[in-house]
């Protein structure tokens, strides 16, 4: 029997499901290799009870409804993969700077917002065991395909500990931070994107979350010397991963 896969979205932009559907060259092979048993975004016939070999979950948890959904997915799945920065770190919608959700909801919806089920956005690992993480906003197509191949063959996908900066140097791109005094988050952001943004002369905004091996102190020092305010630096580094409070 083909391995059974489930694909689920919590609070987010649907980015990881779009990345999966963007594997246009591999999609038909993928359909041949696995059984998409539960994929509401792609099919109107789903088995919502069956055991799953792998559950891919995107988005963050932002309320009781989603926490319940996530726990149910975990109970059915042998392996659970957090897909994308929202699932791994909370993502952009977690940047509430500790302001009460009720106040934010009222600012947006008026009185009607007071009754809404809304909580700060949390990564999946705050609630359930996560077996593998594919950070990125969105996750990279090649990392997703690699993870599928690894997991189907009894292995875990590789973990990248180095920062974007390392990939940028390997590509011999001009350093935006040092030579142009642009606030680039490359030194502290997890690698895997091939240092895409600096390649377009655009600073890294940290969309893959914090690198395991990162020197936040030194990065902050360079930025302070370049004239950036501490508050702005902190804000910048927390845009995608409020968890990475430094």
């Amino acid at each position: 029997m083909k391995p059974r896969i489930g694909i689920f979205g919590l609070s987010g932009c649907w980015g990881e499901q779009i990345v999966m559907l963007n594997c246009e060259d591999e999609l038909l092979a993928l359909v041949g290799a696995v059984d998409f048993a539960d994929f509401l975004g792609g099919s109107s016939v789903n088995d919502c009870e069956t055991r799953l070999d792998i559950a891919f979950v995107e988005g963050s948890v932002s309320g009781a409804l989603q926490e319940k959904a996530l726990r149910r997915i975990r109970a059915r799945a042998r392996l659970l993969v957090a897909c994308g920065t929202c699932a791994c770190f909370g993502g952009v919608s977690a940047i509430d700077d500790g302001r009460p959700r009720a106040d934010l909801a009222r600012a947006v919806y008026g009185r009607a917002g007071e009754g809404y089920d809304t909580a700060s956005h949390h990564p999946l690992s705050d609630f359930v065991k996560v077996d593998a993480r594919l950070p990125g906003c969105p996750m990279e197509k090649h990392e997703f395909l690699q993870a599928v191949a690894c997991l189907l063959n009894g292995d875990f996908p590789p973990v990248v500990a180095t920062p974007v900066c390392a990939e940028c140097k390997m590509k011999e791109q001009d350093c935006l931070l040092v030579s142009r005094q642009v606030a680039c988050a490359g030194p502290v952001t997890g690698a895997g994107c091939g240092a895409r943004c600096p390649g377009f002369n655009v600073p890294c905004i940290g969309c893959r979350g914090p690198a395991e091996e990162a020197n936040f102190g030194s990065m902050t020092e360079i930025l302070l010397k370049s004239g950036f305010r501490e508050e702005d630096i902190r804000r910048k580094l927390r845009t995608f991963a409020p968890e990475s409070r430094t």
Partner: peptide
Amino acid sequence: FEGIRLFEALLRGR
């Protein structure tokens, strides 16, 4: 019943 994300409120002050 999509989880609400309050983007416009989060942008204020940035």
